[in-house]
Amino acid sequence: MISITVQENDFESGAEINRLAAIGGGAISSFVGQVRGDGKLRALELEHYPAMTEKALRKIAVKASEQWALHGITIIHRVGRLQVGEQIVLVCTCSDHRQAAIEACSYIMDQLKTVAPFWKKEILQDGTENWVEERQSDLDAAQYWKS
């Protein structure tokens, strides 16, 4: 079961994890990403390409389910304006075995950062705005799974 959601509203990570865990299997892994504050950041503005986003996320999820024996995958990604400390993303995987659940969760996050059409703009305390640039470490992480 693959569930993909792109939304402006916040999500209940506990409820989402429980929902996926209820499928059975016994091994559940999850990752929650929040807006990281470094003192200068006020908020993030997340833009996406609606016609492509779900397609891209589903492709990542399908690839993960081909690579690992999973019972279910949940991906929730928020868009719009998010304040420091708010949740941005949830990835949750459910399997019979710990390793499959953890690795698939990590794989999905790494792919999501490089092939899902989202763009972050930082809004700083002083009012200046900049588009976040891609990070080499994210590209390296996504590349890791190809080797």
Binding site: G33, L46, H48, Y49, A51, M52, H77, I88, V89, M109, L112, K113, T114, V115, A116, P117, F118, W119, K120, W131, V132, E133, E134, D138
Partner: peptide, 12 residues
């Protein structure tokens, strides 16, 4: 039908 042009993605 549709071409999209954008900078490298930065989600997650």
């Amino acid at each position: 039908k549709e071409l999209a042009i954008f900078p490298p993605v930065t989600g997650g």
